[in-house]
Computed example of a mutant assay.
Amino acid sequence: MRQLLDTRSAGLIGRESAAAELESLLREKRLVTVVGPGGVGKTALAAQVGGRLLDEPWAAAGTADLAPLDVPGLVPHSLARALRIDGSTALPQLPALADAIGRRPMLLVVDTCDRRAEECGETLAQLVEACPALHVLATSRIPLAASDTFPLASPAPDTGVQLLTSAAREAGATEDPDPDLARRICAALDGLPLALRIAGGQLAHRDADDLLTLIGRPDQLLDLPAPMPGLPYRLRTLRGSLCWSVRLCSPGERLLWARAGVFTGPFTRDDALTVCADERLPPDDLVLAFDGLANHSLLTPGPPGTFRMSAATRAYGKQMLELLGEDAEFRRRALTHCLQNALTP
């Protein structure tokens, strides 16, 4: 867990209260999932909390990274390996794993559950029920069934400026960015820690004015590299992070993601129904897709009754829409809808 913390520390600045709250919840509930969009710092926070608990007298403690897991049925095997439980020559199944853990106190951090979210949720819930001294802290872009959820959002603006400045210093910048420009950069990137880490790396060889112009160009924003060695592919660029989310979405969710990218500000479910529904995405299917995108942390709550997409998520959706050849049509629909709302008393 300490190594995981060392290599994925983006986003830890300003997370002290979140770490304390998460630790308290884990002690009480024993199965907690940190949920939020890619790049928000779920892994770093889970590693930090896990690291705080390592000095306690656990019979075993370990970390399982499930990102590479693409074959069903292997979750118990991955958990057994993390806890260094011998499964002999056969892949350990859930009952055998539960028997091996028994009543011994164990701590397990399970990272990136979203690829096998349903299997992970069922497996972890059954393990915690069967093993009364097992504590499991998971991370996922998608909530896990039967797990207490700890939602993680981007930090406050002032904290975002600290993260941006810290990342710039680590990358070799000799001067801190102008505070006003730093706040504007943070706002343009929605305060997402991964995005701020990437932006801070750019400040080592360009000034803040140039960076603000650069991140206003979606094609370039998505492909700026993170200046951190050892990050997995899905966190090396914002495009890599969003590609990972695309794989987790259903076809209807992907289509709505592309079309909803035409909204430049907060929008409601009714707005999406008016602008984005058609014979390819009927209203009932759109409602399911809308809820799915929110569940995947791709739509975040805005003002009461509204949702919004981050700049990077919207830029990725716009590119998907262009590939579908629907960009002009749905931009026209969004403009018409906006004008009609403006003219309605």
Rank of each mutant, 00 (worst) to 15 (best):
192 L>Y: 03
145 A>Y: 07
169 R>Y: 07
215 I>S: 00
107 L>D: 00
135 H>P: 01
158 D>H: 09
193 P>A: 08
192 L>P: 00
116 R>P: 02
209 D>W: 08
203 L>F: 09
119 E>T: 11
215 I>Q: 05
102 G>Q: 10
104 R>A: 14
222 L>T: 05
202 Q>M: 13
175 E>S: 02
204 A>Q: 03
228 M>Y: 09
210 D>P: 03
197 R>P: 01
182 A>Q: 07
242 L>V: 08
217 R>K: 11
107 L>H: 01
242 L>C: 06
226 A>G: 03
148 D>Y: 06
245 S>W: 04
195 A>N: 13
169 R>L: 12
146 A>E: 14
196 L>G: 04
141 R>K: 13
243 C>P: 01
234 R>A: 15
234 R>K: 13
113 C>K: 14
205 H>I: 05
130 A>M: 13
151 P>T: 11
142 I>M: 14
234 R>C: 12
213 T>I: 15
189 L>F: 04
102 G>T: 14
214 L>V: 14
225 P>T: 09
238 L>Q: 02
168 A>E: 06
163 L>E: 11
188 A>H: 02
139 T>S: 00
227 P>Q: 12
244 W>I: 07
234 R>I: 12
186 C>A: 01
139 T>V: 11
192 L>S: 02
136 V>I: 10
217 R>F: 01
207 D>R: 10
229 P>L: 14
153 A>R: 13
129 E>S: 10
248 L>S: 06
223 D>A: 11
198 I>T: 06
